[in-house]
Amino acid sequence: MRPLLALVSKELLDLRAYPLDLLSYAISPALVVTPYLLLARLFGFDAGLVDSVAVGLLLWYWLSTLLGGVGLGLEEEMEEGVVETLLAHPISVLTLLVAKALGTVLLNLYITGAMVAWFFAFGIPLLLPWPAFIGLVLLTGAGISGFMLALAALMLLYKRTFFTYDLIQASLGALSGVAMPARLLPRPLWIISRALPLSYGIESVRRVLAGGGVGADIGLLVGLGLVYFLVGRKLLTVAERRMRAAGTTGEF
């Protein structure tokens, strides 16, 4: 547990290095999202729709930051040049990535809090049952983290050229139903969306927003996240061994 806590603490200390980034995280996501919500209100769409879109966009930021923080593997550490030094300690790549996921979840809570505050400031009060919302957001974060661990393992196995950040972010966002319900997607894409934990997170929160219960979505969200975590753990073991065999531990 101590190695994990030390790494999470390092993730948070990193934020101190660029304090203006924290200001940016508090302002820019809301400034990107809020105009669309205001525009929707201008055209007379009801508050339910506005809230529904707001929820999708809130969770899209979770996807985006977890992709950058975890899904790209150890790119940040590789650029910094510390990967081999870290792995000369009795920790695994999985521990490093879990620490990054925890650090990113904390950062996301901050971003979400700031966005909600901005929504209120712009007169868009989300009519949410807050404890349930926070619980669902955290579970969604855990589900996305599991998915990102598996993605990170692929990144380490096949290197970054296999995917690109923008393509993954846009695809996952669209398929998960960030801006519109996933059921409106063409059937093949809808089937893919069923394999993404974020889809269930967004749908759960929207259902709660509409006054309903979350039902089986929670189970699917947690279950899928766990499956991805286990797949990711296995793939990371393979990737770590392959990097040690090829001598490419510090390369990306």
Binding site: R2, P3, L5, A6, L7, S9, K10, L13, D14, A17, L86, H89, P90, I91
Partner: peptide, 16 residues
Amino acid sequence: KLTAMENLLLFGGLQD
């Protein structure tokens, strides 16, 4: 970006 002490505390933590 970390101080000397923060680096040592981090890597000490990695050694439990």
